[in-house]
Design a protein around this nucleic acid. Sequence first.
DNA 1: CTAACCGAACTGACCAGTCAGTTCAAATAG
DNA 2: CTATTTGAACTGACTGGTCAGTTCGGTTAG
Lengths: 210, 210
Amino acid sequence: MSMHEPAVPELPERKLRPARTNATKQRLFDASMELIGERGAAGVTVDEIAAAAGVSKGTVYYNFGSKSDLIAQLLRHGVDIMLGRLQTIEGLHADPLEAMEAMLGQAMDFMDDYPSFARLWISENWRTPSEWGKLFVELRSELLAVIGAAIEKVATTYTVDTGIARGSLEAAMFGAIFVVGLDRQTYNPERTREQSIAAIMTIMRGYVLR
Amino acid sequence: MSMHEPAVPELPERKLRPARTNATKQRLFDASMELIGERGAAGVTVDEIAAAAGVSKGTVYYNFGSKSDLIAQLLRHGVDIMLGRLQTIEGLHADPLEAMEAMLGQAMDFMDDYPSFARLWISENWRTPSEWGKLFVELRSELLAVIGAAIEKVATTYTVDTGIARGSLEAAMFGAIFVVGLDRQTYNPERTREQSIAAIMTIMRGYVLR
DNA sequence: CTAACCGAACTGACCAGTCAGTTCAAATAG
DNA sequence: CTATTTGAACTGACTGGTCAGTTCGGTTAG
């Protein structure tokens, strides 16, 4: 049960300057991911975030325009990392089902490394007139596209149940991934990574006809 | 897109008195379910809840000891209704897979009727040192028990993949149910009830060996 | 090499507004 | 007559956001 976000795999250096500011932003990301993941966006104060990042409140507003903006960038940041992880398996597996399994493994590992992001995502995603509604639509579709592509490959290689709507299937996978992952972290840490992957793969096995 | 909680199917009248107070409590439940489902527990004020229920703030504190207590009772209330719905199919289907399908139908209908509860549940469920942590553990296990029982019947009637851990499978079902349901409401209202059920049933079809 | 300089990055006290929670006398309804 | 509700007042803590002032690292002139 480690529970600390690891350093990010190096975002592109922006200009010449932001030696300090990049590090600061990173620490603000880490701190706010942790806190917001635990208590929700509305439950965390900017003061707390600043304190946790070892930075003054003013610095938060120097680096981000507002609390809302910080969270928006946080979401973008987290999704970028997750997308990166999911795409590492690209072209490594001949069998689409194996590829899917590897992808689920990446997803589970991501959730181990960034548990707070998963919580943040799931707790803010379906708020109705959300401040970040537009952003969620965009990020969601990026994530679903990756899952959808993996399903697509399965569908072209195997005979699948064409009666199942693709969109609903993606949503089911998505939901299973997040909830199985979060449940494991929060309530059942004894469950293994492989157990979890196997349970989610059940969906794909039910999709493929034999 | 209706989005209004219908009247509750009559909870047992408590004593003799609470003719007025029961109605008041009900309206407070409805109002807070709506608001908290939309903006989260921390994002809603007691004043707002009182106003939305058409009741004074004092009444909230007369009927509930605190905001926290209100939310706890709200969770209990919602889970009771959901449990009631899921159990209506009890013994109506000879085939466990049909029973499961009927149960998923009940779950989808519940989410249509109480969309805000689903949002409330999913957004507060995995908060780490949650104020309602103990309560969530209890309510969660009640819900999972019902799903688990339905899976159990499938497992005794059909030949299933015993390599799949029961707990993880329940979690996968649970996650698929909520996310498919919420996604349909929030982002894809054009998806049908049956489409959604079919997608979730994929899990069970993958679990059963043929 | 070094001292003066510059602007980006950061600080923390401060503000005006909001919050949950409490109380209570008066009104109302069963 | 009594349980319930009202609505308003009050508190003390906390909120997001602002801003005048300070620090820092790198650049440049001498």
